[in-house]
Design a protein around this nucleic acid. Structure first.
Lengths: 193, 193
DNA sequence: GTCTATAGAAGGATAGAC
DNA sequence: GTCTATCCTTCTATAGAC
């Protein structure tokens, strides 16, 4: 069985994804995690802010591993890009448009109110950009273009998460996915067939 | 001088943009708006939820007018697209990365908690997509492609807002803007010069 | 180290004087 | 219709028993 600290982290990540940072209360967290209230302050003496930062870093790491796994399972970055978007669309549909980006809502909420949490979100996003950059350069795309392409893919995905969740439709993420896939394809060096 | 109701609406829009829906308190709103507390319930009997929905619709309308004005001032949709992104980048820089999308934070917060507010945000986003669609078809782009292109542009802009605010850098929005501009250019029918 | 009880502040909402 | 005072809930945080 998972320890209390792990349960608090997992539960908080889930609640943040759905309700955001200010929308999630500590009492709701301990109730959902079947943990005593005092445990939050036992494991996170800095209170909600420290817990929040830990959760953002943890969620960022988990999503990094997910994206990395998808690209590693794909034969090439074009397929990897397509799989990331189609997988995200499938998860959205399966979870009734709840499970999108695990930290986007929190990132926007704290961008101008909590410097430690903003930095945690920025670090997470930049780690995702790094793995995309590496995958693209490994496929022969030049470093400067690979950096731009990573940012373009990230923006398309995050914007599509916002639009799909708000309109409760997977159409935006499918369209954004096709565009991103085509952009990666176009950036690849010419193939000798 | 503006009426009390207008002041409440304007102030709430400003606070929502910075702190989100759950992060903004009614007491903070009336304090910033120099309005008596009771005025909120006088003008918005439904309380915070009714005020929130009105603010989202109002902000959506104002941003629609802004985007429309930028495209009308531009000689062609390629220039219009570039101006939207460069203008957004300039505002971000001038406001210390506070003023980005006026409703994205709220939209993510309420996507799974308030159906009326979610619908208000969806209506706003769709009205922006409509004006983009109309601008693109007016330039000779076919209707199906124009719809996709509008969604692609929206996603790029919103994702870039998220990344730029979080990393406190205009680089993402400039890169996303270049990509979106190129996509619009590529979608235009061949020019006879 | 687990858990409960409670403090103190802030939240949304209401009543009623003027 | 303006404005104040107050109620009740919820929130974060702390104290202290076990």
């Amino acid at each position: 069985m998972a320890g209390t600290k792990e349960r608090i982290l997992d539960t908080t990540a889930e609640l943040f994804r759905r309700y955001g940072y200010t929308g999630t209360g500590l009492k709701q967290i301990v109730a959902d995690a079947n943990a005593p209230f005092g445990s939050v302050y036992h494991f996170f003496p800095g209170g909600k802010a420290e817990l929040g930062e830990a959760v953002v870093r943890r969620s960022g790491q988990m999503y990094l591993e997910l994206v990395t796994a998808v690209f590693e399972a794909a034969p090439d970055p074009v397929t990897g890009t397509r799989d990331v978007f189609s997988g995200a669309a499938a998860v959205l549909r399966e979870t009734d448009f709840i499970d999108a980006c695990p930290i986007a809502t929190v990132a926007l909420e704290v961008a101008n109110t909590s410097e430690p949490m903003r930095r945690a979100a920025a670090d997470a996003f930049e780690s995702w950009l790094d793995v995309l950059h590496d995958r693209f350069t490994a496929a022969g795309i030049g470093a400067p273009r690979a950096s731009e392409l990573a940012i373009e893919l990230f923006c398309s995905l995050e914007g599509a998460f916002l639009l799909s969740r708000t309109t409760r439709s997977v159409e935006p993420i499918l369209i954004a996915g096709r565009a991103a896939t085509a952009a990666v394809q176009a950036a690849l060096p010419a193939q000798v067939s």
